[in-house]
Simulated scan of single mutants.
Amino acid sequence: MLKQKEYKAAREKAVKMIINAGVVICKKDIETMDIADFGLSNLSEEGAQILTLFQTEKVACRVIALFEDQTEPEHWHQPVNDIPGKEETLRIISGELRLYVDGENNIKEGHIPDKKEKYYTCRHEIIMGPCDTLTILPGEKHWFQGGKGGAVFFTMSTTPKDAYDPFSDPGVVRITQIRTE
């Protein structure tokens, strides 16, 4: 659960990062930005700032801002009814993104959040910078972490059904709750 003050500070910081990256956004975008702590109540370590530019039944485009060392927890996009799971393409706008997928354990730059080793099984590190593009296939486990100075990136996907995405950490809750102070 996020405190109102923490929510507002994260949103302000993410908006600055996104605008400094050259993405033009409007007041409505800012007001609807998702500040996701994934129910883990540790936004600076595990969370993401997600701005949905558009979403239809078939495609979605989002801008994600990750602060330095902030981690979006390990998850994958599973089939939903007759939909095979979403395909997601990342395009880095600014900063450095650490992406982790299945493969050889080569973690050098990033780190697994404290006491969460069993929930971060993907250990193959891919460092991405501006203009780097990579597609994650349906069912492929992955997690992200902001590199030095954080990262701003587009995520374009097919058939967005994010509410159905499973996370390795059973404590993850997809809908952020904000408490007033």
Score class of each variant (00 low, 15 high):
E125M: 05
F67R: 03
T32F: 07
D37L: 04
S41I: 10
L137V: 09
E72Q: 08
N105S: 13
P84R: 10
I18V: 14
V80P: 02
H77T: 04
R123K: 15
F38L: 00
R11D: 05
Q145V: 03
T89D: 09
N81Y: 09
I30G: 09
G103L: 06
I30E: 09
D34W: 12
N42V: 07
V15H: 03
I107A: 09
R62K: 14
E125N: 10
N42Q: 03
V23W: 00
E12C: 06
E109W: 12
Q55M: 06
T89G: 11
E140M: 13
S44K: 14
L43E: 00
P73K: 00
H111T: 14
F38Y: 15
K115A: 09
A14Q: 01
W76Y: 11
P84W: 07
G95K: 04
I126R: 13
E104T: 15
E74W: 06
E12M: 12
V24Q: 13
M128G: 05
K58W: 11
E57L: 08
T71G: 03
P130N: 03
H77W: 00
E88W: 06
P113V: 00
G22H: 02
I93T: 06
F54S: 08
A36K: 15
E12I: 11
V24L: 11
L66G: 03
P73W: 01
G139A: 03
H142R: 00
P113E: 00
S44Q: 15
I25E: 01
G146R: 05
Y119R: 08
G39I: 07
L66Q: 01
T133R: 04
A60P: 00
I50D: 04
G110F: 12
R123S: 13
C61H: 05
I93S: 02
M33N: 07
H124R: 13
T56H: 11
L53W: 06
T121E: 14
M17F: 08
G139H: 00
L40I: 11
I136H: 00
D114F: 13
I19Q: 09
T89L: 11
F54V: 09
D82F: 06
K141Y: 07
H124W: 05
F54K: 06
L137M: 06
G39H: 07
E45T: 08
Q78T: 07
A60D: 01
E31W: 10
Q55V: 10
Q78Y: 04
E57P: 03
D34R: 14
T133Q: 10
L53F: 10
G95T: 04
P79C: 01
E31R: 12
M128T: 09
I50M: 07
N20V: 05
G39E: 05
G39K: 05
L99D: 12
